[in-house]
Simulated scan of single mutants.
Amino acid sequence: MLQKIRKAVIPTAGYGTRFLPATKATPKEMLPIVDKPTIQYIVEEALASGIEEILIISGHAKRAIEDHFDSAPALEMELERKGKESLLQMVRETAAIKIHYIRQREMKGLGDAILCAKAFMGGEPFAVLLGDDVVYNEPGRPALRQLMDVYEATGSSVLGCQTVPQEKVSSYGIVDGVATDDARMLKVLDMVEKPSIEEAPSQMAVLGRYVITPQIFSILENTLPGKGGEIQLTDALRVLAHREPVYAYDFEGTRYDVGDKLGFLKATVEYALRRPDMGAAFQDYLQELLAEED
């Protein structure tokens, strides 16, 4: 019987050096897109997809993440005293999310971070959501849920991908695969890290969402350090694809690379424009700003 995907891991142990000095004392995952930390968008996607238990792999100076999802009695009392019921409800809902934590003691790569989750997963297939990729979908079918649907249909690991322009393939890990009956899906043969346009086997780029079978753990335990002296998840997935079927799925949704400053700004602007409480006023401001420049 096919095991249900119940658990997800979110690695957050990186230093966030691209956002220094802001991330010297503040985790990059806590940088807000409008008024909500980046990691909360990731957690909410997991919950909306049907995930029941979440493990965050933390590291040095990441305590703010734990505090964010913890209760805040003094703050709740103050909000209650001032009659700010909507804010009080928001704070309580955030604290009600059940999250587990484990620390990655050394920064030895994404593969090592995933290996830290072995005991928590208990031999079950699981999801991985990387915090550098925020995906916007209309309510009802989050990016991770799309991958979970593919897993339920195939019983196999699934890489979350999107088709990128040909001139962008050198910025991503690109899937080498064969077509399936589903136009959005390839069966993975291999992956090529940041190939040239001429070398790229496809335009399917792996973008921070995965559903993985537990066989990955034994592979990770025997994966030698690769690029940068780190244990790479990609190297382990390539081995997995030679042992059992692995699929790449071109998920629907607007994806933002919030680990990049421009991508973070795009996410902030577009999420603000979607907000019913500020979108129209913000759009007017942007139009005025552009008119002044003209």
Rank of each mutant, 00 (worst) to 15 (best):
V164Q: 05
K82C: 07
D235W: 01
L75K: 15
A61S: 07
Q162D: 02
D260P: 01
A143V: 05
V169L: 04
G228I: 00
R6V: 08
G16S: 13
D235M: 06
D133M: 14
T26L: 14
M148N: 13
V188T: 02
G228Y: 12
A143T: 11
A25N: 12
P32V: 02
D235H: 08
P37G: 03
T163C: 09
L55E: 00
C161G: 07
D284I: 13
Q283W: 08
L290F: 04
A13E: 12
E138C: 13
I39S: 10
I33N: 05
D182P: 12
L75G: 00
A267C: 13
E76M: 10
E198C: 02
P139G: 11
A291D: 08
T154V: 15
A74E: 14
T26G: 00
I39F: 09
S157V: 13
M148L: 13
D294Y: 09
G14L: 04
G109F: 14
D176G: 02
V169P: 04
G14M: 07
L220D: 03
D250P: 02
V135S: 11
M191D: 01
E244H: 03
L273N: 03
L189R: 15
T254R: 14
G140Y: 09
I174C: 03
P165R: 10
I212K: 10
F69V: 06
A143R: 12
D257Q: 04
P245S: 07
L20M: 13
R63L: 02
S71G: 13
G160V: 14
P201Y: 02
Q215G: 14
A179F: 12
G177R: 06
E221M: 06
D35N: 13
I99S: 01
Q162H: 08
P73A: 11
P37K: 00
Y210H: 15
A95Q: 06
R145Q: 15
G59C: 01
A281Y: 07
I65D: 09
A46P: 11
I65V: 15
E167M: 04
T213H: 01
S171Q: 11
V135R: 05
Q166Y: 05
T12M: 15
R238Q: 08
E244T: 10
I197K: 11
E199F: 00
Q232G: 00
A61Q: 12
A143M: 13
R255Q: 12
V91Y: 14
G208N: 03
K266A: 04
L31S: 09
S171D: 14
T223W: 05
D112F: 10
Y271F: 15
P139Q: 09
G173V: 10
Y136E: 11
E106V: 02
